[in-house]
């Protein structure tokens, strides 16, 4: 089972570190990272393995959202199924 984490907002020091740290805390394994910075706008997409997650997925999603709010970034954690459903037949 995988989840997609997206982080969007103004670039600053340590975004990737904080988000990865958040994942590690819940035993979520980061599989792929794609990031770009355009005119100070930071955009990162992380694909994570949540098979061995140490808490309820919903709690993880809510905590990461709060982490984003603390950094002034918009963080979304969504189960991969929504993307599979919408973009593949």
């Amino acid at each position: 089972m995988k989840a997609v984490i997206t982080v969007v907002g103004k670039d600053s020091v340590g975004i990737l570190a904080k988000v990865s740290n958040g994942c590690a805390e819940y035993n979520v394994n980061v599989l792929e990272v794609s990031q770009s910075v355009l005119s100070e706008m930071f955009c990162m997409i992380m694909i994570c393995d949540i098979s061995a997650i140490s808490c309820d997925f919903v709690d993880f999603a809510n905590d990461m959202k709060k982490l984003g709010e603390n950094m002034g970034m918009s963080v979304h954690v969504m189960h991969e199924d929504i993307f599979n459903s919408m973009h593949s037949i």
Partner: peptide
């Protein structure tokens, strides 16, 4: 596997 455009489109 995942297309960045698809992911951002869904969120948008």
């Amino acid at each position: 596997m995942y297309n960045t455009h698809d992911i951002l489109e869904t969120i948008k």
